[in-house]
Design a protein around this nucleic acid. Structure first.
Lengths: 171, 171
DNA sequence: ATTTACAGGACCCATCCGGTCCTCTATTGT
DNA sequence: ACAATAGAGGACCGGATGGGTCCTGTAAAT
């Protein structure tokens, strides 16, 4: 169906929630290990069952996107600044690496390589998508102006039409 | 897993095969209703089971991407020129419309709209991906130089870095 | 020591996808 | 008119995957 899994969707929403709760540039000011929110609080904010949120948080921690702290006062916080976290990474952490087709995962996996007329173009398509997603960061997602600014521009970010001058000023 | 379905993958390969078999610009020269290939021939070329290929061909015909002809000497041919068929359309025909998340499908589908911090950015992400895919046509896929030409450029097609001058000459 | 909260993994169920098959209709050629 | 060919449409089944829950263990704070 060419859709991200719900878990991934949740994950990105949760990350946005965390970014909004730690509005300082340095989410973890190095001296203070107090995590911004714990799983229960996040589940409430996002209005999803705690076990689900918990599952997502664990995956994000394993991917080193979040830092976790155990114990009483434990919880989660962003491991990096929102500007340094791309959508591609979020997806990779929860849905696995972006690979639109099996042959995008690596060579010699597909049985039909011999007869396939378009091996390498797939790789290009994959890269195009991956980079489109890598161009958006968590900071963009939580920036209220982002959607408005890009609503009309988004249509131009493909391989063609890149000489449109209005694209040159970006946030 | 964020992957296209195999059927979609097959479909694109099959379309490439058809494009290569009808190398003239006008795949159907209007006067001659003889389809280029039938399902059995395509199945052989692509080395996939006939029923599978057949299923894909039917879907592509329903989407008006292919023209079909019944009876003896029947078969399939491209309904348009390869330059006028985008990857987005191929995907939509076989996998449904590109909608990375449920809320990309339309408003008021998601239960969490009230609490969701990043409704509209998703729409932007979706558009970015969709347009990245819309920038590639069937003609590109069958062009042997395409992959080589774009291997190094593909990384630049996101929302940032669009002022790179080397992107301006496209095929 | 107790309580809190994360870590890790097992588990079940619903859904979807890949693949096959059967029947029907349209076209061509004899 | 008839037979042969080829697409149209849809039913169907088994396996894989994803969504969601739960249980046990471990680390930190009071």
């Amino acid at each position: 169906m060419f859709r991200l899994s719900k878990l991934t969707d949740y994950g990105i929403v949760i990350l946005a929630e965390l970014a909004l709760s730690a509005p300082d540039g340095e989410s973890v000011p190095a001296g203070d290990p107090r995590p911004s929110l714990n799983a229960r609080e996040l589940a409430e904010h996002v209005d999803l069952p705690l076990p689900v949120v918990s599952k997502v948080l664990k995956a994000l921690t394993r991917a080193e996107i979040l830092d976790s702290q155990r114990g009483t006062k434990g919880g989660y916080s962003l491991a990096r600044k929102p500007e340094d976290l791309t959508v591609t990474e979020m997806i990779a952490a929860l849905d696995g690496p972006v690979a639109l087709t099996q042959c995008s995962e690596g060579p010699s996996i597909c049985d039909h390589e011999a007869t396939c007329a378009i091996k390498s173009p797939w790789q290009v398509i994959n890269d195009v998508v991956q980079n489109a997603l890598a161009s958006i960061t968590l900071a963009d997602l939580t920036n209220p102006g982002f959607a408005a600014q890009h609503a009309s521009l988004a249509g131009l970010a493909g391989l063609r039409g890149l000489d449109d001058s209005s694209l040159n000023e970006e946030l």
